[in-house]
Design a protein around this nucleic acid. Structure first.
Lengths: 336, 336
DNA sequence: ATAATTTCTGCAATCGTTTGCGGTTGCAAT
DNA sequence: ATTGCAACCGCAAACGATTGCAGAAATTAT
């Protein structure tokens, strides 16, 4: 009952038959007599035999495992995506291997390599913020392991993508704020090269122009975390008298600025209206409840793995990258 | 550049040497001449050789992977634990395999078995709410795979545990509320058999008695989610006039009841003081900012895997289970 | 020149499983 | 009695890497 787990050979030895027969019996191969089969089955159950997944994987050249690399698991959006992925994987008997890049390029590279070493059947990736060199992704293509990007993808590469319509989301929010009477809308944007943030910002800018409002670049602040909002406190309070709306690139910074403004005596939504992006659970908990764009993380996760499984099952030579864009919706609450 | 990844045999063939020599060269074995070694190294790099982790694992009877089973990844507390686990694992070159039980017993069993099938070197587990049968844990012991429980553990089993001092946490909160003048404190408890919740409740009850306040069992409500708080709205509002404090078993229900009470016109903390448990990031975002017990998830994750690694490295026959209990601290904010 | 030693490399078994192919039964048909 | 054909089972190679042991080559000692 201790030591190494039972193998197929142990069963063979105990029953005086060959390992091949045991293997076939356990696999319900028709060549094996009902008698032998049942003896094997019975004994296997008795000693709690379980196949060695490593050996099976080695033999079959695949591991029944799919790899997931995400920036940070603590973000609710990514957690929900993982739940969606796991949901499908579980129903199909697939294992899921999750790694975090922690928004670090080197870690992303190492994680991806480790996944390939483990012969994962496919990869699901949302790239880290500071990934510019894409050679590790190219390596994945070359090794013929299907890979699907979700939410954050390298635009330079022609790949399968599961994404959110961030542009549309940015438009929805901005349109909504304008409809509510806002004429001077501050946008809290993400720093640097994050495409999703850039798209939201583009949606904002486009809508401003479409509405024939004056587009003021000074109304865009690189400020995408609670900390950064508080760090920019002076700057924000200096602008506050001249704005009547805020569109934050995510819910946390939306709430941060909401608190900051309220603490400074501004009424929300009366004086200034605020909206976020993501529909974090926190959005419906804070007061005033935050208007925000709903992102369908769970559905995205499901879609991503389903698309991946299709790629795995049909390793077609003629690869035509596909993009699945999830539509968003605006959840209007009390902050606007 | 496509098809199956390069193996050690491919290198051997190409260089006209044996696979064993290649293996030794890559492993810096002293038997191999500097010349041969460098030729192998060079060629391996050129064709981007990477060892097949499945084969290595099969040979060595371990996978350099540790398995983690948690109830739900979307809970911030568990996410931080995972981050702590990954932090250490990453620094040691270990892979981490994460599965969610979704608070479902069957899924927990299947996940654990899958981990064992993959020959994980060790297991880190936080058991699901509805796990009563413990035979799958016993199987792990019998297979000699080290296992450490974190946060939620089966009290019937003598195992290694990394836990929070929930009892002390419950006391801290209750003492604090009493010090602030509360005399009639409602406790929102977790349903049924969750030990961590029971401990917090025990801390509450003990403190009430120690303070010579009357302990009223009617002041304990099984209500541990936002939804359940709202479902119990009538009941809570009926009690509200007679209470002056609330200790919720977690932050989400604390915030839910805070909102519910405020919507009904109660002043927090003036009329009723509220405190939670866990120190979810949301606690410092909501208004009023929530007083709550800080749980050190990241540290717990680190400690758990460190303890596991020690168990893996010293597979001592004389097993003496250890419990590491993390002390908690109270973060006093505006809600109390 | 032979023996002893060092230095390097290869053979083959092994980890646990799968599977093509061939072999051994038994039984019915001829 | 021979052939034919199922039905059932085992041999051995493979997947990719590791490693004890033996052996070859080169070097040194005698």
């Amino acid at each position: 009952m201790k030591g190494a787990p039972a193998s197929i050979n142990d069963i063979a030895r105990a029953l005086g038959i060959s390992a091949s027969t045991v293997s076939r019996a356990l696999g319900n191969h028709p060549d094996i007599s009902a008698d032998t089969r049942s003896r094997v089955m019975e004994y296997a159950k008795a000693i709690k035999y379980r196949p060695n997944a490593l050996a099976v994987g080695l033999k079959h050249q695949r591991s029944n495992t799919i790899g997931v690399v995400i920036p940070e698991i603590i973000h609710h959006f990514f957690s929900t995506i993982i739940s969606g992925i796991e949901e499908v994987a579980y129903s199909k008997g697939l294992r899921v291997m999750i790694c975090q890049s922690n928004e670090d390029y080197n870690r992303e590279v190492i994680n991806i390599r480790a996944m390939l070493d483990h012969r994962v059947d496919g990869l699901l990736i949302s790239q880290s913020k500071d990934t510019n060199d894409l050679s590790h992704f190219v390596e994945v293509f070359e090794s013929n392991v299907p890979i699907i990007f979700f939410d954050r993808f390298p635009s330079e590469l022609e790949t399968d993508r599961i994404i959110t319509d961030d542009f549309q989301g940015g438009k929805l929010v901005t349109q909504h704020l304008i409809e509510r009477g806002c004429r001077s809308i501050l946008h809290l944007a993400t720093s640097e090269n994050l495409l999703v943030g850039a798209e939201r910002c583009r949606g904002y800018a486009d809508t401003i122009r479409e509405a024939a409002l004056t587009f003021d670049p000074n109304l865009i602040l690189l400020c995408d975390t609670q900390q950064k909002v508080y760090a920019a406190k002076e700057q924000i309070l200096a602008m506050a008298p001249h704005i009547d709306g805020v569109f934050a690139v995510n819910d946390l910074s939306a709430i941060a600025i909401m608190n900051l403004l309220m603490d400074a005596g501004y009424q929300i939504p009366d004086t200034i209206k605020v909206a976020g992006f993501g529909d974090d659970p926190i959005a419906s908990i804070v007061r005033p409840r935050l208007t925000t764009v709903e992102q369908k993380g769970f559905m995205m996760g499901k879609k991503a793995i389903e698309m991946l499984l299709e790629r795995i099952e049909n390793p077609t030579s003629s690869f035509v990258p596909r993009t699945y864009k999830f539509q968003v919706s605006l959840n209007m609450r009390d902050s606007s």
